[in-house]
Computed example of a mutant assay.
Amino acid sequence: MSASLFTRRLAAAPAMRTSMSRAFSATAPRDVAKITLIGNLAASPEVRATSTGREMIEYAVASNHGPKDNRQTSWFRVSTFAEEGPRRDFITSLTKGTTVYVEGDAVMKTYTDGEGKTRTSLSIYQKQMEVIRRPPPPSE
């Protein structure tokens, strides 16, 4: 790189940094955390109605970590809105044990339980799902 080109880039760098509030991204900032999961479905996804009458699909993903002799499982509840049609039919046709890749928004919620204790829960709202492996069909 020539010295004059290097000098021009160096001189322009501070001006570029001050003109952008987030130099690493051109998108607007969001107060949401992203999460990526790879795990197995704990059961077939179910369609449930919300308090407003809109339907959503809910399912749980189990993800294992640690060595075989001390394996631990983390459970994640995932929700998604899918109108009637092929996408909803595909998700609800998945069976227990299906290995899935899920990308979504993670939101921590704080609530008071029936005993008056403060609890927190992690809610995951699916943005994308891909099937990695389906379990073998049951043998007869």
Rank of each mutant, 00 (worst) to 15 (best):
137 P>G: 00
41 L>C: 02
103 E>M: 12
70 N>G: 07
140 E>C: 02
80 T>F: 01
44 S>H: 01
139 S>A: 08
89 D>L: 06
122 L>S: 05
101 Y>A: 10
103 E>P: 03
49 A>D: 11
132 I>L: 12
53 G>W: 02
59 Y>N: 00
15 A>Q: 15
116 G>H: 01
51 S>L: 08
104 G>D: 02
66 G>Q: 11
106 A>S: 05
116 G>R: 01
36 T>S: 08
17 R>I: 15
43 A>K: 07
22 R>H: 15
127 K>Y: 01
69 D>W: 01
115 E>Q: 13
90 F>A: 01
35 I>E: 01
131 V>M: 03
71 R>D: 04
31 D>V: 14
129 M>I: 04
12 A>S: 15
137 P>W: 00
70 N>E: 14
88 R>M: 06
59 Y>R: 00
80 T>G: 06
67 P>T: 15
7 T>I: 13
29 P>G: 10
82 A>H: 03
93 S>G: 03
46 E>D: 02
32 V>E: 12
19 S>L: 14
3 A>L: 15
65 H>S: 13
46 E>M: 05
11 A>S: 15
34 K>G: 07
108 M>K: 06
114 G>Y: 06
138 P>K: 14
132 I>W: 01
36 T>H: 12
33 A>K: 11
39 G>S: 09
87 R>C: 08
39 G>A: 06
44 S>E: 06
38 I>Y: 07
89 D>G: 03
106 A>D: 03
2 S>P: 09
129 M>A: 03
